[in-house]
């Protein structure tokens, strides 16, 4: 650590912080990679041509972010090439929501508004991180993510203006909502606490979840999806997360990982001889 309390490289971190942060970066990189894949499933066949084009741009952004953060894991003693191309399904730390394609447009929209925002909140918590390699990359990422949020918000407003649109969203958003509320971990999550105490992030799990609620609850409740309520000026979820099956190390609500087809595509199995570094 330097005098100003900054860490310029992973080797400067305590062993505990290095392990926690390395794990968090892999969680984020995997979620970015898999979310990009899910956006890409809807490049054609979205309800509007413009929506497909937006999915194309968002898919590309997610893979751009993934590329940066996989590369960063090199200094945490991991091999980015192996992480990107050489892992089996259960080794992925992406949310179970991303294991297979979104079944419909409203399911994709739920990932766009709720899960993508959860990832952004986790990155935003590192905007002023003492760990400089992350700190210096987050603002560009968040710049790009603003458009993802606006896209999600715009579609919720659009679909929310009709009864059938609202009903479709209610069905699709509920499971994604539940998984995203849980994704930050329990309020007393020790890893999130240690990262916050160490100045890597600026909030613990409870603080991050509150920030996420503040961001997405007004959007879903502007069209009355009934997922959150305002309580003394703060938003809270109407459902409590179920912790059974939650694995804090991989930040997943169930075992397993990406489905077979997703895995082949995400690792680039069919293009392996063409890989360029």
């Amino acid at each position: 650590m330097t005098e100003e309390g900054k860490y310029s490289k992973a080797a400067d971190l305590s062993e505990e912080l290095r392990e926690h942060l390395g794990s968090l970066i892999l969680v984020l990189a995997d979620n970015k990679r898999l979310l990009g894949m899910r956006y890409s499933d809807w490049i054609l066949g979205a309800p509007a041509l413009e929506a497909g084009i937006a999915c194309s741009a968002m898919a590309q952004d997610e893979w751009g972010h993934g590329r940066i953060f996989y590369a960063m894991l090199r200094e945490f003693g991991q091999d980015p090439n192996q992480l990107e191309h050489g892992r089996e399904s259960p080794e992925y730390r992406s949310s179970e929501l991303l294991d297979g394609p979104a079944a419909g447009w409203t399911d994709l929209l739920a990932l766009n508004l709720l899960l993508d925002s959860a990832l952004s909140v986790q990155f935003e918590a590192m905007a002023e991180s003492r760990f400089e390699p992350v700190h210096y990359k987050v603002s560009k990422l968040l710049d790009e993510e603003r458009f993802h949020f606006e896209h999600g918000r715009g579609w919720v407003a659009r679909l929310g203006s009709t009864e059938s649109g609202r009903e479709a969203m209610q069905g699709a958003f509920a499971p994604v909502w539940e998984a995203c509320v849980r994704w930050f971990g329990p309020d007393d999550d020790e890893v999130a606490r240690a990262l916050c105490d160490g100045g890597i992030t600026d909030k613990d799990a409870a603080g991050l979840r509150a920030r996420w609620l503040e961001r997405v609850a007004p959007v879903v409740e502007s069209v009355g999806l009934g997922l959150a309520e305002e309580d003394g000026g703060a938003w809270r979820s109407r459902t409590e997360p179920a912790w059974e099956g939650w694995d804090p190390d991989v930040r997943r609500g169930r075992g397993g990982g990406p489905d077979a087809d997703t895995l082949v595509r995400v690792r680039g199995d069919k293009n392996r001889p063409l890989l360029m570094d």
């Binding site: 590309q60 952004d61 997610e62 893979w63 590329r67 560009k140 360029m276």
Partner: peptide, 12 residues
């Protein structure tokens, strides 16, 4: 140097 976007397809 930087790129205009994180997913710039022309980085190489």
């Amino acid at each position: 140097l930087t790129f205009t976007a994180t997913a710039c397809p022309c980085t190489d």
